[in-house]
Design a protein around this nucleic acid. Structure first.
Lengths: 339, 339
DNA sequence: CTTGGCACTCGGTTTCCCGGAGTGCCAGAG
DNA sequence: CTCTGGCACTCCGGGAAACCGAGTGCCAAG
């Protein structure tokens, strides 16, 4: 069942099919890969592989193509992540370093990934909930109007305007600024509620009512609205694979337009230690059942900022795409950590 | 050449073709539209319309389809913008009002437009260069590190971190804040250079070097980087029209991925007084030559915030799409003006 | 100017046929 | 027991031929 030659045959089938898009037959296979055996022998192995579910027939008199299970085995045991050339690495680095702000980093990453892999690229903005507060600014727009600006360590900025029932003096605002600033600075967003717990009691009674209403908005912004954003690019690459998507690419495009779906995709496994691959039916997302998804988290291990990856036909260059995803994830992680 | 009946025939052809996607013949046309004449007469008119370039033949024995020129005439003279139902209007309003910040407004507009029109929707973020400063905040992150946060009247936020060679005291920062704040508050971004012109001279010599370097970054952020952003959605609708795009939809998707292209599209005519339509070859953008684009500016007349619109096959429901685009543009304009 | 009639064109569909690629199986050799 | 060559069989894909029908252009008459 795991005889080396059969594995070798499977590898050959995957490689040939990925590069030619055509079902591969025993003769061609025996010729192109120096397996040292005759087509007939290959046929026997193929039959066995088919019995075990690694490959199929589109129809009787056609060559074989890998099944999802076949790809899975290929990814797990037969291929390794392909490192990028040093030229590519340099290109990535310099392209990413040209970014002026977080938005730019994300946009560039998307472009980079989709160009490297020639697939659809997906990049999640650094998650709010896992970041910490670099700065919380409270701006006094008008007597009863405040603007909160939250800046995280990953460069993300969130802002909120809030209308108060009372009017405030500059001193009041300064007091608020001080109260929140001292408690939140450097704190992780998830820890915000704890950090602020004693605030109402500690504050001067005069501003207490205002303070609590500001506090609720602050907490809401920091914690309750883990509104995650996603950037997407390279969808035109999908059209190259029209043949690969039986029911046309409609459902795929639809799925990709759903932020929620993408978040689920990247959220399921976004640990920055290794690349993850979901193949075909393994995807829990209806509509992406005919695609494969290669993802990886970026940022510090254990508390990643977010995830990124590519989506393409199951017939994809796994080794290469995994290499690109890994490389980009690492650079983005470093870049944001250093920012 | 402009006899009413011939125009009527053209209208009928456009309407039928748009709704059926099939070349329309003289018989069907005479039946379905009560023109009061026989198919033979219609044929004569059709021949004339063809001579004048408003319609064509895909092949000898097929019905007629409108040319770009035909659609143009149709849009200009034969159809009027279709107002939305009041239910639709209410839906738009309530959906847009639910937005919590600018990003959300834009995202919702895209979604709204693409759902209303069932086409690809494009929305430009409020242009920086045409907005004015609501607030410029200078935050003292570290002794020699400042964070600038610019908030415009349309709710857009831009931020920049800058490293200084000198270290600053809190008082210095307060002075900077005061210097910039007083001059910029409420100023239009384009007027920023003028507003700041006298600043170096007026400032205390102590902070002058710092001030000029801050100033250059401020100006760069405000003026030199009119980096416009675009949101896009509904691309899956394109797949419905695979038939309409001869060379597959590849080039269309590619064009849509280019921010620059989209900006050009929306930039060319984004005045908020009327809806604009570009049909097929009228588009200067290679790759969108087989599509039509319906656009409109939003915001105050004369100084719009930005533009929005939809992109679809030339065979589209012009009246309906124009109505939707206009309605959304108006609501978005009002919403941002009131913010 | 409009209309009915009519011959003609031509694309789309269906049917049929054939070649070729590829398989599965078997019997013999190592 | 494994590998190999041989061989019959399957079946897709493409090309040719035939057919159908929608639609046109034109003409002669109302």
């Amino acid at each position: 069942m795991l005889e080396p030659r059969k594995l070798e045959v499977l590898r050959a089938i995957v490689e040939d099919f990925v590069s030619t898009t055509e079902p591969v037959g025993s003769r061609a296979l025996a010729e192109r890969h120096s397996l040292g055996v005759s087509p007939a022998t290959v046929r026997n192995d193929m039959a066995a592989l088919e019995d075990e579910g690694y490959i199929t027939h589109p129809h009787t008199s056609a060559g074989r193509i890998p099944t999802d299970k076949g790809y899975r085995l290929f990814v797990d045991r037969l291929s390794s992540v392909k490192p990028l050339s040093s030229a590519e690495k340099r290109a990535i680095q310099s392209f990413l370093e040209g970014a002026v702000d977080l938005d730019d980093v994300v946009r560039r990453s998307v472009r980079l990934l989709s160009q490297l892999t020639r697939q659809v690229a997906v990049v999640q903005y650094p998650s709010l909930s896992r970041s910490s507060v670099r700065h919380l600014e409270i701006v006094h727009l008008a007597p009863s109007r405040l603007l909160l600006v939250l800046i995280t360590d990953t460069g993300r900025v969130e802002q909120r305007v809030l209308e108060l029932s009372a009017t405030l003096s500059e001193d009041d605002v300064a007091a608020l600024r001080q109260a929140f600033g001292s408690r939140l600075h450097g704190a992780r967003l998830v820890d915000a509620p704890a950090a602020l717990a004693d605030l109402p009691d500690a504050a001067p009674t005069a501003i207490r009512p205002v303070l609590t209403s500001v506090m609720s908005v602050v907490l809401e912004t920091l914690v309750d609205r883990p509104e995650e954003r996603i950037a997407l690019g390279g969808t035109s690459h999908l059209t190259r694979h029209v043949l690969d998507f039986p029911q046309t690419l409609r459902p795929v495009l639809e799925a990709l337009e759903e932020q929620v779906v993408l978040l689920k995709l990247l959220g399921e496994v976004n640990d920055p230690s290794t690349v993850h691959v979901k193949i075909g039916e393994e995807n829990n997302v209806e509509g992406l059942r005919s695609t494969s998804v290669v993802t990886m988290g970026y940022g510090p291990e254990g508390s990643p900022y977010g995830g990124l990856g590519v989506v393409g036909p199951t017939r994809m260059d796994y080794a290469g795409n995994m290499g690109s995803v890994r490389a980009v994830a690492r650079y983005v992680g470093e870049l944001l950590a250093g920012a």
